[in-house]
């Protein structure tokens, strides 16, 4: 999954493994990737689809 290995705290990894399944992810990797992507979004300039649509909905013609 990762191009290079990243060290994670043992306890954290155990927690991730336990919760990934509960949260509906197919694997801990998917969970971690998703969490990181979500966090990264906050640093990237591009707005999400939802945010763009939300702004367009300010226009009365569109509800």
């Amino acid at each position: 999954m990762f191009g290079s290995k990243i060290k994670l705290d043992k306890d954290l990894l155990a927690k991730i493994k336990r919760l990934a399944d509960l949260a509906g992810y197919s694997s801990p990797e998917e969970f971690i990737t998703h969490a990181l992507e979500k966090e990264l979004e906050q640093f990237e300039g591009a707005e999400s689809e939802e945010e763009i649509k939300k702004r367009l909905r300010g226009l009365g013609y569109i509800s």
């Binding site: 939300k54 702004r55 367009l56 909905r57 300010g58 226009l59 009365g60 569109i62 509800s63």
Partner: peptide
Amino acid sequence: PDILGGYGTFSFYSSDIFLEERSLAG
């Protein structure tokens, strides 16, 4: 645009604890 850069986004505040914080159109 308004200060948020769109066609205008109002805010509605209520002390009703059962009222869900949410986004509406505009």
